[in-house]
Amino acid sequence: MAIFIDLLLNALVIGVLLGGFYAALSIGLSITFGLLDVVNIAHPTMLVLGAFIAFLLNSTWGIDPVLAGIISTPFFFVLGWLIYQVYYNVFEKSGAESLRGLAFFFGLLFIIEVGLIIQFGVDHRLVEAPYIGQSWNIVIGEEIDVAIPFRLLVAFVVAAIATLAIHAYLTKTFFGRAVRAVAQDMMALRLMGVDPIRVKRIAFAMGVATAGIGGALMIIVLPIEPSLGRLYLGNVFAIVVLGGLGSISGTLLAAVIIGIAESIVATFFGPSWAPAVSFGILLAVLAFRPEGLFGKTAGAH
């Protein structure tokens, strides 16, 4: 019994932490895809780019990976700004974004990936930080102790702060509210004195900017290599859809639900079932709530 409780407690704790990490990977997509309707399938690969930048700063100057992520975030903001500029002028402006826009981001994914291979090779990379490989052991009872790996704790705390900050920005500021409205009615937004293209450009840049800090968390949690982004593509889209398109807090909660489900399944039923369970949850939820767990669907658009 003690062993069962020990495993359960640890699975729950790890699940919540893992959820925070997943949220960090998904939050940018929750903005670009969830709020702006821009299907940025290159997002996970941008995260890998962020991870390599963290690696470069860490291995060259010994900069802490979290700090490296904060440093590279403005760079990603500018990158997102430029990408949207191209996307808007070439596709969105002429209403050709649905399929050709998708192809654009697909191409971007491979350009970034191949660029990383040329620059860094295909080797797996890790970063060094004092908290990686260490854990915090909390003894709860006889044969029951909870071990919290610091690398996951750091990822969770940073992801939670970033998610809550973005959520607050989008709900409490004039610009944030315009971001949430822009996909619903661009013409109405113009009548409010808002330039919807500017709103989309800045919001898209914000979404891409999360790849800086998110990528740093990625390389803190696991070793990275250039093609890793494609591996996580399905997961991040699943989390954004599960949480409900347009809901930032929904993305965080969905990520935690997936994290707990994977961790419980890996502990008690076998790790190979974990991804099946995440997508099973997604299917089950969509069957009953097509708008996702925390999505809002008052309007038809």
Binding site: R180, A181, Q184, D185, G193
Partner: peptide, 30 residues
């Protein structure tokens, strides 16, 4: 359109054109 709103011209558009997935208060605030 932005300059025109700044000049003090507001429009209640045909078909209302609300932001359906935002709350009443959020629509007003926008």
């Amino acid at each position: 359109p932005q300059e025109i709103v700044e000049a003090g011209v507001a429009q209640v558009p045909e078909g209302r054109r609300l932001f359906p997935d935002l709350t009443v208060e959020e629509n007003l605030t926008l």
